[in-house]
Amino acid sequence: MREYCRVERDGALTLVTLARPERRNALHVHANEALQEVWDDFAADPDQHVAILTGGPDFFCAGNDLKWQAEGGKVGGVRSGFAGLCYRFDLDKPVIAAVNGIAMGGGFETVLNCDIVIADETARFALPEVRHGMAALAGGVHRLTRTLGRQRAMGICLTGRMVSAAEGRELGFVNEVAPAHEALRVARDWAATLLANGPLALQATKHVALQGLSTADIGVACRTEYWPVQRMKASADYVEGPRAFAEKRKPEWTGR
């Protein structure tokens, strides 16, 4: 199953690379199943704290493999959605997207589910489903509307038009535009910055931020006791952080 992607671990960093170049990294059900296993493993591994998701040098992901579907291949979804990620609402560990070239349909939806997006200057994004009589139902219409607001999101969703990396940065769903073919290098720099922080603090921060989006009353959101925050406060890292600051040294995180 893992022939559809490559997984590398570099210390506490997991690098996931989509690997269907013959289909511009378009994904079918078997690829989605493989990626679901990858993200299950990442979520369960206490020694892995940050992930980067990337594609090839010329494309990130062309979305759902419509050729496979037209050829009569098995269709269907997986529990955690497109790329094993789009319906995964309980992953508190940060995920960075490193985007070279195109991110179309499900590829763009996957990008929108990542926490930080690094796009090289050649990157292009689109939700073209409406052009094929379909809709971006892997979370794209919901996430884009929440990120951009109604009118700007609808201007993309209802036309299926392409959005450049520079426009994505201006609109707010791209964090940084990298030189051509250097998105992964820049994403690694961001990952290094994240990994210098407390891993349980990262997870608590992401959990609280995303859960708070579903709470209309900010007062309720601020007063809610979230379990990752309780875990963080009970950890050895919660003692190590202030101690390292007082001793003017780098903290030695354990994630426990």
Score class of each variant (00 low, 15 high):
residue 37 E to Y: 09
residue 192 A to Q: 13
residue 189 D to F: 11
residue 250 K to Q: 13
residue 109 E to I: 03
residue 61 C to T: 06
residue 169 R to E: 10
residue 205 T to F: 10
residue 226 Y to P: 00
residue 95 V to R: 03
residue 78 V to S: 08
residue 70 A to I: 03
residue 36 Q to P: 06
residue 57 P to V: 14
residue 15 L to G: 00
residue 31 A to N: 04
residue 188 R to M: 13
residue 62 A to F: 11
residue 70 A to D: 15
residue 208 V to D: 05
residue 220 V to D: 10
residue 225 E to C: 07
residue 189 D to A: 10
residue 249 R to C: 01
residue 145 T to G: 09
residue 159 T to M: 11
residue 75 V to M: 13
residue 130 V to R: 15
residue 219 G to K: 09
residue 48 Q to S: 12
residue 182 E to S: 07
residue 81 G to Q: 00
residue 138 A to E: 12
residue 121 E to N: 04
residue 112 L to P: 00
residue 154 M to N: 08
residue 199 P to G: 01
residue 227 W to H: 12
residue 35 L to T: 00
residue 217 D to F: 12
residue 205 T to V: 07
residue 234 A to D: 06
residue 115 D to L: 00
residue 174 V to F: 10
residue 218 I to P: 15
residue 81 G to E: 03
residue 166 A to T: 10
residue 242 P to N: 06
residue 49 H to A: 00
residue 61 C to N: 11
residue 125 F to L: 06
residue 136 A to P: 14
residue 237 D to S: 04
residue 125 F to Q: 01
residue 167 E to D: 02
residue 220 V to K: 13
residue 210 L to Q: 15
residue 201 A to S: 13
residue 13 L to Y: 13
residue 219 G to M: 09
residue 29 V to E: 12
residue 165 A to P: 03
residue 115 D to M: 10
residue 188 R to E: 11
residue 130 V to P: 03
residue 7 V to P: 03
residue 74 K to A: 15
residue 13 L to V: 11
residue 67 K to D: 15
residue 126 A to V: 03
residue 52 I to V: 14
residue 149 G to Y: 02
residue 184 L to F: 06
residue 47 D to I: 03
residue 71 E to M: 09
residue 190 W to K: 11
residue 59 F to L: 12
residue 71 E to I: 03
residue 130 V to M: 10
residue 168 G to V: 01
residue 164 S to P: 04
residue 71 E to R: 01
residue 123 A to W: 02
residue 214 S to E: 14
residue 224 T to M: 12
residue 54 T to R: 02
residue 146 R to V: 04
residue 87 Y to Q: 06
residue 105 G to S: 15
residue 246 A to C: 10
residue 1 M to Y: 07
residue 230 Q to M: 11
residue 129 E to I: 02
residue 41 D to C: 10
residue 230 Q to P: 05
residue 142 H to C: 12
residue 244 A to M: 07
residue 9 R to H: 15
residue 173 F to S: 05
residue 102 I to N: 13
residue 185 R to V: 13
residue 43 A to T: 12
residue 116 I to F: 15
residue 249 R to L: 00
residue 167 E to C: 00
residue 166 A to M: 12
residue 106 G to R: 02
residue 167 E to I: 01
residue 85 L to W: 04
residue 245 F to C: 11
residue 149 G to T: 03
residue 151 Q to Y: 08
residue 237 D to A: 08
residue 237 D to V: 12
residue 243 R to P: 04
residue 10 D to I: 04
residue 90 D to M: 08
residue 30 H to A: 14
residue 9 R to Q: 14
residue 251 P to D: 00
residue 247 E to Y: 02
residue 6 R to T: 11
